[in-house]
Nucleic acid binder design. Structure first.
Length: 295
DNA sequence: AAGAACATCAACCGCTCCAAA
DNA sequence: CTTTGGAGCGGTTGATGTTCT
Protein backbone atom coordinates (compact mmCIF):
# COMPACT_ATOMS: atom_id res chain seq x y z
CA UNK A 1 0.00 0.00 0.00
CA UNK A 2 3.03 2.19 -0.16
CA UNK A 3 2.75 5.44 -2.01
CA UNK A 4 3.76 4.98 -5.62
CA UNK A 5 6.76 6.93 -6.87
CA UNK A 6 4.55 8.20 -9.67
CA UNK A 7 3.00 10.55 -7.13
CA UNK A 8 6.30 12.18 -6.52
CA UNK A 9 6.87 14.99 -8.99
CA UNK A 10 10.05 16.32 -10.55
CA UNK A 11 12.14 13.25 -9.95
CA UNK A 12 14.62 11.95 -12.48
CA UNK A 13 14.11 8.59 -14.14
CA UNK A 14 16.13 6.43 -16.48
CA UNK A 15 19.79 5.48 -16.48
CA UNK A 16 21.99 6.70 -13.66
CA UNK A 17 24.92 9.00 -14.39
CA UNK A 18 28.32 8.40 -12.81
CA UNK A 19 27.84 11.61 -10.83
CA UNK A 20 24.64 10.28 -9.32
CA UNK A 21 26.35 6.97 -8.56
CA UNK A 22 29.14 8.77 -6.75
CA UNK A 23 26.70 10.79 -4.67
CA UNK A 24 24.79 7.68 -3.67
CA UNK A 25 27.87 5.64 -2.82
CA UNK A 26 29.44 8.49 -0.89
CA UNK A 27 26.31 9.04 1.16
CA UNK A 28 25.74 5.37 2.00
CA UNK A 29 29.39 4.77 2.85
CA UNK A 30 29.28 7.63 5.31
CA UNK A 31 25.79 7.32 6.78
CA UNK A 32 24.40 3.97 5.73
CA UNK A 33 21.20 3.97 3.71
CA UNK A 34 18.83 4.44 6.64
CA UNK A 35 15.37 5.26 5.35
CA UNK A 36 15.43 4.90 1.60
CA UNK A 37 12.59 7.35 1.27
CA UNK A 38 14.54 10.04 3.07
CA UNK A 39 17.88 9.25 1.46
CA UNK A 40 17.60 11.11 -1.89
CA UNK A 41 17.02 14.46 -0.22
CA UNK A 42 19.88 13.97 2.22
CA UNK A 43 22.21 12.73 -0.52
CA UNK A 44 21.25 15.51 -2.93
CA UNK A 45 19.71 13.23 -5.53
CA UNK A 46 16.69 13.98 -7.70
CA UNK A 47 15.56 10.36 -7.49
CA UNK A 48 12.91 8.51 -5.55
CA UNK A 49 14.05 6.33 -2.67
CA UNK A 50 12.99 3.25 -4.52
CA UNK A 51 15.23 4.05 -7.45
CA UNK A 52 18.14 4.65 -5.07
CA UNK A 53 17.59 1.35 -3.30
CA UNK A 54 17.47 -0.53 -6.58
CA UNK A 55 20.59 1.15 -7.91
CA UNK A 56 22.47 0.34 -4.72
CA UNK A 57 21.33 -3.24 -4.24
CA UNK A 58 21.62 -4.27 -7.87
CA UNK A 59 24.64 -2.34 -9.03
CA UNK A 60 26.62 -0.19 -6.62
CA UNK A 61 26.84 -2.42 -3.57
CA UNK A 62 30.50 -3.41 -3.10
CA UNK A 63 29.80 -7.11 -2.47
CA UNK A 64 28.40 -7.81 -5.91
CA UNK A 65 29.91 -10.25 -8.32
CA UNK A 66 29.38 -9.36 -11.93
CA UNK A 67 30.10 -11.12 -15.17
CA UNK A 68 29.45 -14.54 -16.57
CA UNK A 69 27.73 -17.15 -14.44
CA UNK A 70 29.80 -20.24 -13.72
CA UNK A 71 28.59 -23.74 -14.48
CA UNK A 72 28.18 -24.29 -10.75
CA UNK A 73 26.03 -21.20 -10.46
CA UNK A 74 23.91 -22.28 -13.42
CA UNK A 75 23.35 -25.64 -11.78
CA UNK A 76 22.33 -24.01 -8.56
CA UNK A 77 19.87 -21.68 -10.29
CA UNK A 78 18.19 -24.50 -12.19
CA UNK A 79 17.99 -26.68 -9.11
CA UNK A 80 16.63 -23.92 -6.94
CA UNK A 81 14.18 -22.83 -9.61
CA UNK A 82 12.87 -26.38 -9.72
CA UNK A 83 12.33 -26.18 -5.97
CA UNK A 84 11.31 -22.57 -5.48
CA UNK A 85 9.89 -21.39 -8.79
CA UNK A 86 10.25 -17.72 -9.69
CA UNK A 87 11.21 -16.70 -6.17
CA UNK A 88 14.30 -14.85 -7.29
CA UNK A 89 15.16 -13.28 -3.98
CA UNK A 90 15.05 -16.68 -2.29
CA UNK A 91 17.22 -18.12 -5.02
CA UNK A 92 19.63 -15.20 -4.72
CA UNK A 93 20.24 -15.92 -1.04
CA UNK A 94 21.91 -19.16 -2.12
CA UNK A 95 24.13 -17.52 -4.72
CA UNK A 96 26.60 -15.31 -2.88
CA UNK A 97 27.20 -11.90 -4.43
CA UNK A 98 24.55 -12.33 -7.11
CA UNK A 99 21.41 -10.19 -7.11
CA UNK A 100 17.88 -11.40 -7.65
CA UNK A 101 17.58 -9.10 -10.66
CA UNK A 102 20.69 -10.53 -12.27
CA UNK A 103 19.56 -14.10 -11.66
CA UNK A 104 16.12 -13.33 -13.00
CA UNK A 105 17.60 -11.80 -16.16
CA UNK A 106 19.99 -14.70 -16.61
CA UNK A 107 17.18 -17.19 -16.23
CA UNK A 108 14.96 -15.39 -18.73
CA UNK A 109 17.66 -14.82 -21.34
CA UNK A 110 19.75 -17.98 -21.07
CA UNK A 111 18.58 -20.83 -18.90
CA UNK A 112 14.89 -20.80 -19.79
CA UNK A 113 15.73 -20.94 -23.46
CA UNK A 114 18.29 -23.68 -22.97
CA UNK A 115 15.84 -25.91 -21.11
CA UNK A 116 13.19 -25.26 -23.75
CA UNK A 117 15.61 -26.30 -26.49
CA UNK A 118 16.25 -29.51 -24.61
CA UNK A 119 12.56 -30.26 -24.54
CA UNK A 120 12.17 -29.39 -20.87
CA UNK A 121 9.34 -27.16 -19.75
CA UNK A 122 11.20 -24.38 -17.88
CA UNK A 123 8.31 -23.80 -15.52
CA UNK A 124 7.60 -27.38 -14.49
CA UNK A 125 11.11 -28.71 -15.20
CA UNK A 126 9.49 -31.74 -16.74
CA UNK A 127 9.95 -33.21 -20.18
CA UNK A 128 7.46 -32.01 -22.73
CA UNK A 129 7.23 -35.53 -24.13
CA UNK A 130 4.56 -37.00 -21.94
CA UNK A 131 5.18 -40.48 -23.26
CA UNK A 132 8.71 -40.55 -21.92
CA UNK A 133 8.66 -43.50 -19.58
CA UNK A 134 11.72 -42.28 -17.68
CA UNK A 135 9.60 -39.56 -16.18
CA UNK A 136 6.49 -41.55 -15.54
CA UNK A 137 7.25 -42.06 -11.89
CA UNK A 138 7.69 -38.36 -11.32
CA UNK A 139 4.34 -37.73 -12.90
CA UNK A 140 2.81 -40.42 -10.76
CA UNK A 141 4.30 -38.92 -7.63
CA UNK A 142 2.99 -35.50 -8.44
CA UNK A 143 -0.45 -36.69 -9.43
CA UNK A 144 -0.75 -38.93 -6.42
CA UNK A 145 0.36 -36.17 -4.09
CA UNK A 146 -2.10 -33.70 -5.55
CA UNK A 147 -4.90 -36.22 -5.34
CA UNK A 148 -4.02 -37.00 -1.76
CA UNK A 149 -3.97 -33.36 -0.82
CA UNK A 150 -7.32 -32.86 -2.47
CA UNK A 151 -8.70 -35.75 -0.46
CA UNK A 152 -7.23 -34.37 2.70
CA UNK A 153 -8.84 -31.04 2.07
CA UNK A 154 -12.16 -32.73 1.65
CA UNK A 155 -11.54 -34.28 5.04
CA UNK A 156 -12.21 -37.82 3.89
CA UNK A 157 -9.33 -39.43 5.73
CA UNK A 158 -8.07 -36.78 8.06
CA UNK A 159 -9.19 -36.37 11.62
CA UNK A 160 -7.30 -33.17 12.25
CA UNK A 161 -7.42 -30.70 9.38
CA UNK A 162 -4.28 -29.03 10.64
CA UNK A 163 -2.48 -32.09 9.30
CA UNK A 164 -3.24 -31.20 5.71
CA UNK A 165 0.19 -31.15 4.10
CA UNK A 166 1.36 -27.71 3.15
CA UNK A 167 3.62 -27.11 0.17
CA UNK A 168 6.79 -27.81 2.09
CA UNK A 169 8.75 -27.97 -1.11
CA UNK A 170 8.35 -24.23 -1.50
CA UNK A 171 10.16 -23.48 1.74
CA UNK A 172 12.21 -26.60 1.90
CA UNK A 173 15.48 -24.69 1.95
CA UNK A 174 14.59 -22.47 4.88
CA UNK A 175 15.03 -25.04 7.62
CA UNK A 176 18.51 -25.86 6.31
CA UNK A 177 19.70 -22.39 6.93
CA UNK A 178 19.68 -22.83 10.66
CA UNK A 179 19.16 -26.50 11.30
CA UNK A 180 15.69 -27.96 11.40
CA UNK A 181 13.67 -28.85 14.44
CA UNK A 182 10.13 -30.06 14.80
CA UNK A 183 8.96 -26.74 16.13
CA UNK A 184 10.76 -24.80 13.45
CA UNK A 185 9.24 -26.94 10.75
CA UNK A 186 5.83 -26.51 12.31
CA UNK A 187 6.23 -22.78 12.30
CA UNK A 188 7.35 -22.73 8.71
CA UNK A 189 4.81 -25.07 7.30
CA UNK A 190 1.85 -24.44 9.55
CA UNK A 191 1.63 -28.14 10.25
CA UNK A 192 1.14 -29.22 13.82
CA UNK A 193 3.19 -32.35 14.05
CA UNK A 194 1.96 -35.24 16.13
CA UNK A 195 4.29 -36.31 18.93
CA UNK A 196 4.94 -39.70 17.41
CA UNK A 197 5.71 -38.13 14.06
CA UNK A 198 9.27 -39.22 13.41
CA UNK A 199 9.67 -37.91 9.88
CA UNK A 200 11.19 -34.60 10.86
CA UNK A 201 13.84 -36.16 13.03
CA UNK A 202 14.71 -38.50 10.20
CA UNK A 203 15.34 -35.67 7.76
CA UNK A 204 17.08 -33.42 10.23
CA UNK A 205 20.46 -32.47 8.77
CA UNK A 206 23.59 -32.70 10.90
CA UNK A 207 23.87 -28.96 11.43
CA UNK A 208 27.57 -29.10 12.34
CA UNK A 209 28.29 -30.53 8.92
CA UNK A 210 25.56 -28.64 7.12
CA UNK A 211 27.03 -25.20 7.65
CA UNK A 212 30.12 -26.03 5.62
CA UNK A 213 28.25 -27.64 2.76
CA UNK A 214 27.28 -26.20 -0.59
CA UNK A 215 23.64 -25.95 -1.48
CA UNK A 216 24.03 -28.87 -3.84
CA UNK A 217 25.57 -31.07 -1.19
CA UNK A 218 22.86 -30.10 1.25
CA UNK A 219 20.26 -31.19 -1.25
CA UNK A 220 21.90 -34.52 -1.81
CA UNK A 221 22.68 -35.23 1.83
CA UNK A 222 19.53 -33.92 3.42
CA UNK A 223 16.92 -35.56 1.29
CA UNK A 224 17.34 -38.97 2.80
CA UNK A 225 14.33 -41.13 2.79
CA UNK A 226 13.06 -41.59 6.31
CA UNK A 227 12.68 -45.07 7.70
CA UNK A 228 9.09 -45.97 8.16
CA UNK A 229 8.15 -49.15 9.91
CA UNK A 230 5.47 -51.19 8.30
CA UNK A 231 1.99 -50.10 9.18
CA UNK A 232 3.01 -46.87 10.81
CA UNK A 233 2.83 -44.56 7.83
CA UNK A 234 0.01 -42.08 7.68
CA UNK A 235 -1.13 -39.67 5.06
CA UNK A 236 1.01 -36.84 6.35
CA UNK A 237 4.17 -38.90 6.47
CA UNK A 238 3.74 -40.27 3.01
CA UNK A 239 2.78 -36.94 1.54
CA UNK A 240 5.76 -35.24 3.12
CA UNK A 241 8.05 -38.00 1.95
CA UNK A 242 6.74 -37.54 -1.54
CA UNK A 243 7.45 -33.86 -1.40
CA UNK A 244 11.04 -34.55 -0.44
CA UNK A 245 11.33 -37.23 -3.07
CA UNK A 246 9.99 -34.90 -5.74
CA UNK A 247 12.68 -32.45 -4.77
CA UNK A 248 15.36 -35.09 -4.78
CA UNK A 249 14.34 -36.37 -8.17
CA UNK A 250 14.23 -32.89 -9.60
CA UNK A 251 17.62 -32.10 -8.15
CA UNK A 252 19.29 -35.19 -9.53
CA UNK A 253 17.64 -34.66 -12.86
CA UNK A 254 18.78 -31.06 -13.19
CA UNK A 255 22.28 -32.15 -12.21
CA UNK A 256 22.36 -34.36 -15.21
CA UNK A 257 20.75 -31.74 -17.41
CA UNK A 258 23.41 -29.19 -16.70
CA UNK A 259 26.46 -31.41 -16.51
CA UNK A 260 25.53 -33.15 -19.71
CA UNK A 261 23.54 -30.47 -21.42
CA UNK A 262 24.29 -31.63 -24.95
CA UNK A 263 23.28 -35.21 -24.51
CA UNK A 264 19.66 -35.75 -23.67
CA UNK A 265 19.85 -39.52 -23.75
CA UNK A 266 22.65 -39.63 -21.20
CA UNK A 267 20.65 -37.32 -18.99
CA UNK A 268 17.65 -39.55 -19.11
CA UNK A 269 19.69 -42.72 -18.57
CA UNK A 270 21.24 -41.24 -15.48
CA UNK A 271 17.90 -40.02 -14.27
CA UNK A 272 16.48 -43.50 -14.65
CA UNK A 273 19.05 -44.76 -12.16
CA UNK A 274 17.84 -42.24 -9.62
CA UNK A 275 14.28 -43.08 -10.37
CA UNK A 276 15.01 -46.77 -9.83
CA UNK A 277 16.46 -45.89 -6.47
CA UNK A 278 13.16 -44.46 -5.37
CA UNK A 279 11.26 -47.38 -6.83
CA UNK A 280 13.32 -49.69 -4.65
CA UNK A 281 12.42 -47.67 -1.62
CA UNK A 282 8.80 -47.94 -2.56
CA UNK A 283 9.19 -51.70 -2.68
CA UNK A 284 10.56 -51.63 0.85
CA UNK A 285 7.41 -49.81 1.87
CA UNK A 286 5.45 -52.70 0.48
CA UNK A 287 3.81 -50.79 -2.32
CA UNK A 288 4.79 -52.71 -5.39
CA UNK A 289 2.10 -51.62 -7.76
CA UNK A 290 2.17 -47.86 -8.07
CA UNK A 291 2.71 -44.73 -6.07
CA UNK A 292 -0.96 -43.99 -6.15
CA UNK A 293 -1.72 -47.19 -4.30
CA UNK A 294 -0.26 -45.74 -1.13
CA UNK A 295 -3.42 -43.76 -0.82
C1' DA B 1 27.60 -0.58 -45.38
C1' DA B 2 22.99 -0.47 -43.74
C1' DG B 3 19.22 -1.70 -41.39
C1' DA B 4 16.48 -5.46 -39.54
C1' DA B 5 16.21 -8.82 -36.04
C1' DC B 6 17.57 -10.53 -31.92
C1' DA B 7 19.82 -10.48 -27.22
C1' DT B 8 20.93 -8.36 -22.99
C1' DC B 9 20.15 -6.15 -18.73
C1' DA B 10 19.35 -1.87 -15.98
C1' DA B 11 15.53 0.24 -14.42
C1' DC B 12 10.69 0.95 -13.75
C1' DC B 13 5.93 -0.22 -12.21
C1' DG B 14 2.45 -2.27 -9.63
C1' DC B 15 1.73 -5.06 -6.19
C1' DT B 16 2.14 -7.43 -1.49
C1' DC B 17 3.92 -7.77 3.04
C1' DC B 18 4.48 -6.19 7.50
C1' DA B 19 5.55 -3.18 11.31
C1' DA B 20 4.18 0.89 13.54
C1' DA B 21 0.82 4.23 14.79
C1' DC C 1 -8.83 -3.78 14.63
C1' DT C 2 -7.75 -0.50 10.96
C1' DT C 3 -4.84 2.54 8.52
C1' DT C 4 -0.55 4.05 6.81
C1' DG C 5 3.70 3.95 4.57
C1' DG C 6 8.40 1.87 3.94
C1' DA C 7 10.60 -2.02 2.02
C1' DG C 8 10.97 -5.54 -1.04
C1' DC C 9 9.49 -8.68 -4.81
C1' DG C 10 8.50 -10.25 -9.51
C1' DG C 11 6.99 -9.03 -14.14
C1' DT C 12 7.87 -6.09 -17.75
C1' DT C 13 9.85 -2.43 -20.56
C1' DG C 14 12.94 -0.08 -23.40
C1' DA C 15 17.62 1.53 -24.44
C1' DT C 16 21.67 -0.26 -26.08
C1' DG C 17 24.66 -3.64 -28.06
C1' DT C 18 25.41 -7.53 -31.21
C1' DT C 19 24.55 -10.55 -34.97
C1' DC C 20 22.46 -11.59 -39.22
C1' DT C 21 20.93 -10.76 -43.92
Amino acid sequence: MGRSPSFEKGLKKGPWTSEEDQKLVAYIEEHGHGSWRALPLKAGLQRCGKSCRLRWTNYLRPDIKRGKFTLQEERTIIQLHALLGNRWSAIATHLPKRTDNEIKNYWNTHLKRRLTKMGIDPMTHKSRTATNTNLSHMTQWENARLEAEARLVRGSRVVNKSLVPQPLSIDVLKPWQGGITSSKLSNLSGIELPKNQNLVENVEPPSSILKDMSVEDRLINTLEFPKVEEGTQNILEVSNMMTYQDNYLMETFTNHLVSDANNNQNCLDAFEEDNNYWSNILDKLGNNTSFSSIF
